[in-house]
Amino acid sequence: MGQARALMGLSAQLDEELDFREGDVITIIGVPEPGWFEGELEGRRGIFPEGFVELLGPL
């Protein structure tokens, strides 16, 4: 779908969440519900709030 750069780090609180560090580039693979993305980073998949990232182009 597209890519996004992390504006800040996120520590996953639930198993389905993706954790990442500020500056990581995450591949967006879905939008499971409004306000959330599903992404992949370094072979890991999970969901995260859209406010933690900036899109690097259209989805």
Rank of each mutant, 00 (worst) to 15 (best):
Gln13Asn: 13
Val25Glu: 10
Glu33Tyr: 08
Ile47Asp: 01
Val31Cys: 12
Glu54His: 09
Glu22Gly: 06
Gly51Asp: 14
Val25Trp: 06
Ile26Pro: 06
Val53Gly: 03
Asp19His: 12
Leu7Ala: 00
Gly57Asp: 09
Ile47Ser: 07
Leu14Cys: 15
Phe20Gln: 11
Gly30Ile: 04
Leu7His: 05
Phe52Asn: 11
Thr27Asn: 15
Pro58Trp: 05
Asp24Phe: 07
Arg45Leu: 04
Glu22His: 02
Ile28Leu: 06
Val25Pro: 05
Leu18Asp: 06
Leu56Ile: 11
Phe52Gly: 08
Ile26Met: 03
Ala12Asp: 05
Arg21Ala: 12
Leu56Lys: 05
Gly57Ile: 06
Gly46Val: 03
Ile28Thr: 05
Asp15Trp: 03
Arg44Lys: 13
Ala6Gly: 04
Ile47Gln: 11
Gly9Lys: 10
Gln3Tyr: 13
Gln13Cys: 10
Pro49Arg: 13
Ile28Asn: 02
Met8Pro: 06
Glu40Asp: 03
Met8Thr: 14
Glu54Leu: 09
Leu56Asn: 08
Ile26Asp: 04
Arg45Lys: 09
Glu54Val: 05
Gly35Met: 05
Pro58Glu: 11
Glu42Ser: 10
Ser11Met: 10
Leu55Met: 09
Val53His: 00
Arg5Met: 11
Gln3Glu: 10
Gly9Leu: 05
Phe52Gln: 05
Asp19Arg: 09
Glu16Tyr: 14
Met1Gly: 06
Gly2Leu: 08
Phe20Thr: 00
Asp24His: 01
Gly46Asn: 03
Arg45Ser: 08
Met1Val: 10
Gly9Trp: 01
Gln3Met: 12
Gln13His: 12
Leu41Lys: 09
Ile47Arg: 15
Pro49Glu: 07
Pro58Asp: 13
Ile29His: 05
Ser11Ala: 12
Gly2Trp: 11
Arg45Glu: 07
Ala12Arg: 14
Glu54Arg: 08
Asp24Ala: 06
Leu56Asp: 08
Gly57Val: 09
Asp15Thr: 09
Ile28Val: 10
Thr27Gly: 04
Glu42Met: 14
Phe52Trp: 07
Pro49Gln: 09
Leu10Gln: 15
Gln13Pro: 11
Leu18Pro: 00
Arg21Asn: 15
Glu40Phe: 08
Glu16Thr: 13
Leu59Met: 13
Gly39Gln: 00
Phe48Val: 08
Gln3Phe: 14
Gly39Val: 01
Leu56Trp: 00
Glu38Lys: 12
Asp19Val: 08
Gly30His: 03
Leu14Ile: 14
Gly39Met: 03
Ala6Trp: 07
Leu59Ile: 09
Leu55Val: 12
Glu50Cys: 12
Leu59Trp: 08
Gly35Asn: 06
Asp19Gln: 14
Asp24Met: 03
Leu14Tyr: 13
Glu38Ile: 10
Ser11Trp: 06
Glu38Pro: 02
Glu54Gln: 08
Val53Ser: 02
Gly39Glu: 04
Pro58Tyr: 02
Trp36Asn: 00
Met1Phe: 10
Ala6Ser: 04
Arg45Gln: 13
Pro49Ser: 04
Ile29Trp: 06
Arg21Ile: 11
Glu40Leu: 12
Gly9Gln: 14
Gly57Leu: 06
Glu22Phe: 06
Asp24Arg: 01
Phe20Gly: 03
Asp15His: 09
Arg44Gln: 09
Gly2Thr: 14
Phe52Lys: 12
Glu16Arg: 12
Gly23Asp: 07
Pro32Ile: 07
Glu16Ile: 13
Met1Tyr: 09
Leu41Cys: 10
Met1Ala: 06
Ala12Pro: 14
Val31Asn: 14
Glu40Arg: 10
Gly30Arg: 13
Leu55Asp: 01
Gly57Cys: 12
Pro32Gln: 02
Met8Asp: 08
Glu40His: 09
Phe37Gly: 02
Gly23His: 04
Met8His: 13
Pro49His: 09
Thr27Val: 03
Arg44Gly: 03
Gln13Gly: 11
Pro34Arg: 09
Trp36Ser: 07
Leu41Phe: 13
Gly46Ile: 03
Leu55Ala: 08
Gly9Cys: 13
Ala6Met: 08
Arg44Asn: 05
Leu41Arg: 11
Gly9Phe: 02
Thr27Trp: 00
Gly2Ala: 07
Glu22Asn: 06
Phe52Asp: 00
Glu38His: 08
Leu59Tyr: 01
Ile26Lys: 03
Glu54Ser: 05
Phe52Leu: 13
Leu18Trp: 02
Glu33Lys: 15
Arg21Leu: 11
Glu17Thr: 11
Asp24Tyr: 03
Leu14Gln: 15
Pro49Ala: 03
Phe37Gln: 00
Met8Ile: 14
Gly23Leu: 01
Gly2Phe: 06
Arg21Thr: 12
Gly46Tyr: 02
Gly30Glu: 01
Val53Tyr: 04
Gln13Leu: 11
Gly57Thr: 13
Leu56Ser: 07
Pro58Leu: 04
Glu50Leu: 05
Gly2His: 01
Glu17Leu: 11
Met1Thr: 05
Asp19Trp: 11
Gly39Pro: 07
Glu22Ser: 10
Leu14Met: 15
Glu50Phe: 10
Glu42Gln: 11
Arg5Ile: 11
